[in-house]
Design a protein around this nucleic acid. Structure first.
Lengths: 135, 135
DNA sequence: GTCCTTGCAAAGCTTTTGCATCGCT
DNA sequence: AGCGATGCAAAAGCTTTGCAAGGAC
C-alpha cells in the first residue's frame, strides 16, 4: 500500500514525504474530510504536522487531480479522493451526512442546457439538501 | 417605487432606512452582486455607507427571504433578489458571465433521487461551469 | 423617548505566504 | 549536496461583532 501510495505521489511529481503519505491515508479512511479535521486527527494520533502543510498538500493534491475539493455549507471546504467515478452529493440538513449519487439523465440534461445557451459544459457542481423522510 | 420598497421592508419587519433602501435599489439594478461591489458602488455615487452595514443588511434580507445568497467561485458571495421564480445558474469560466436557467426535467429528477434514498428534497444548488462554444 | 440602525474599528475564521530549517533522493 | 517540503508565525481575504452615536417611529 505504501508502494502504491508512493507511486501515486511520484506520478504526480511529488516527493513521497511522511506528511503527504499520512494525509493520503487520512483521505482513504474518510470519504469527505476538511483540512482542519485531517490536521486534528493526525495531531491526536501523535503525528505532528502543521495546519499550513495540510492545506498546502491538499492544494497540491487537488492540482494533481488526486483529490476533489467541495465547499458544501460554505465555511470549511472538504476534500475527497478522486477515483474518477464522477458523482454528486446530497447533504442531510439534520445529521450532516453526505450521500453520493450519480444520475445520467441529469448529466445529459446539463450538457444539453449548456449547449442550448451556446456554451459547452466544462464542469458542474450539484448538491441536494435533504432531510430524512420521517422528520 | 419607494412606496413599494418601504412596504417590502416593513413587511419584513425592517425599518425603512436609507442604507436599506439604497441597497435594495442596487439589487434591483444588478442581478448578481457582491457585498463589496454594492459598497463600492454606493461610495462612488457619494452615498456613504459602511461595509459592515452592507453585510448586515444583506444578511437580514436573506433571513427575510428578500434575497438569495450564492457562493459561486468560493471567495466573495453574490446576492440576487428573490422573485420567487426558482432558477439555477451557469457561469462562464472565461468571462465570468452568469446565465440563469430552469429545467423541469432536472428538478423532477432531483426530487426522485432524494426520495429514492429515503430523503425529501428541501433545497438544492446547481451551477454549471461552461465556456463559449467557440473557444 | 425608545429601540432599532449605523459606522468604525477590532476581531473571527478559513486559507495562504514568508522564511529559516529540515529531509527526500 | 541540492532542492523541494515543512513548521511556525504572520498575513490575507471575507465576514461578523462590540460599542457608542445617530435615526426611525
Amino acid at each position: 500500500m505504501t508502494n502504491k501510495t508512493n507511486k501515486n505521489l511520484k506520478e504526480a511529481g511529488l516527493r513521497a514525504t511522511l506528511p503527504r503519505i499520512k494525509i493520503l491515508e487520512m483521505l482513504e479512511n474518510h470519504k469527505h474530510i476538511s483540512a482542519e479535521d485531517i490536521y486534528r486527527d493526525l495531531i491526536e494520533n501523535r503525528y505532528d504536522v502543521g495546519l499550513a502543510t495540510v492545506y498546502r498538500v491538499l492544494t497540491q493534491f487537488e492540482n494533481a487531480g488526486i483529490v476533489i475539493k467541495h465547499s458544501f455549507e460554505s465555511s470549511k471546504a472538504v476534500y475527497e479522493l478522486n477515483n474518477s467515478d464522477h458523482h454528486d452529493h446530497m447533504v442531510c440538513l439534520d445529521s450532516g451526512d453526505i450521500v453520493e449519487f450519480h444520475d445520467d439523465i441529469i448529466e445529459t440534461r446539463q450538457e444539453e442546457i449548456a449547449k442550448k445557451h451556446g456554451f459547452k459544459l466544462i464542469d458542474h457542481s450539484m448538491v441536494l439538501y435533504v432531510k430524512k423522510t420521517n422528520s
